[in-house]
């Protein structure tokens, strides 16, 4: 494999007949594309398969041997509405993820800015402290947090989930925005400050607009993390406040609920995030590479 590889780096190959080189080059690109398509299938088919169960009648899902052919039906979607209060589940997920995202950005963006601009040596250490917070095993904080929420009467509310999600998300945002602010030029800010613009206005009108892609990326990740979380939500919410992820899990253990219904419910749990990622792909990719380097 390595042969195709290193040539792919855009390194011009010298010598040999040019015509032959070009043909070999074209062939190697073709081989690589075929390989990529096969790999793509491996990564996408399992998801498509689960989603496709939503359109299958139960007897086709459990057909032995499993078959590719089925008579499509909408009945699984109607049973989703029969068994679940879908708008309420989605509303919970939206409140939890947006609540945590807004809170994390409000806390994390200014902190990332301060750490990137501070001339104090320990700033890097503080940035690493935020990174470290994200690596703490969630169970270590969840159990005491659960007891704390019970004692102050927030257990079972959206607040409990939003608060604990925000502690991880805001640490992530600080780290990410620290990276974005550090790579954004400081000279315009200096000019604004010398011209008598105060610190706060310089931050809002000069520094922030320069890192909008970073803010979008941070928001995408916060929404994704809290929408996809179910460990925290499982233990911290109750029936009326549970998000769609928890509903999926409890549905899975229930006899009445078929795989078809689960597949239909999974649409509402996965598609919003997948669509968000595809629409904002540029920011997502940039954020992923920046947030970990």
């Amino acid at each position: 494999m390595a042969r195709a590889i290193v040539r792919g780096g855009g390194v011009p190959s010298g010598s040999a007949g040019k015509q032959g080189m070009r043909r070999a080059e074209a062939r190697s690109i073709l081989y690589r594309r075929v390989a990529v398509i096969v790999i793509l299938a491996v990564f996408l088919l399992p998801l498509l398969w689960l989603l496709s169960t939503a359109y299958k009648p139960t007897r086709d899902i459990f057909a032995t041997p499993p078959t590719l052919l089925f008579s499509p039906t909408w009945s699984n979607f109607t049973s989703v509405f029969r068994y679940f209060d879908l708008p309420e589940l989605l509303w919970s997920s939206i409140v939890i993820s947006l609540g945590s995202t807004v809170l994390s950005l409000l806390l994390g963006v200014p902190a990332g800015y301060a750490l990137a601009r501070a001339k104090f040596r320990g700033a890097v250490g503080v940035a690493y402290f935020f990174l470290a917070i994200r690596t703490v095993p969630p169970v270590a904080t969840l159990i005491p947090f659960y007891i704390l929420m019970r004692d102050i009467g927030l257990l079972g509310t959206w607040w409990a989930v939003i608060l604990i999600n925000t502690s991880l998300n805001c640490a992530f945002v600080v780290w990410m925005m620290y990276a974005y602010f550090r790579s954004s030029p400081i000279s315009i800010e200096e000019a604004a400050l010398t011209d008598g613009c105060n610190d706060w206005r310089t931050f809002l009108t000069v520094a922030l607009p320069a890192v909008v892609p970073g803010i979008i990326a941070s928001a995408i990740f916060c929404v994704m993390f809290s929408w996809n979380d179910f460990l925290f939500a499982m233990f911290l919410t109750r029936a009326e406040t549970k998000p769609i992820s928890v509903a999926l899990l409890s549905a899975y253990g229930t006899k009445d609920i078929s795989w078809g219904t689960l597949g239909a419910l999974a649409h509402f749990s996965t598609l919003p995030i997948i669509l968000m990622m595809l629409f904002l792909n540029r920011y997502f990719v940039q954020g992923l590479t920046k947030g970990v380097n």
């Binding site: 793509l40 996408l44 689960l50 996965t270 997948i274 990622m277």
Partner: peptide, 12 residues
């Protein structure tokens, strides 16, 4: 397209 698995709820 390859990044889709990363965004799918781990539960799913």
């Amino acid at each position: 397209l390859l990044l889709i698995p990363v965004t799918v709820t781990p539960l799913v």
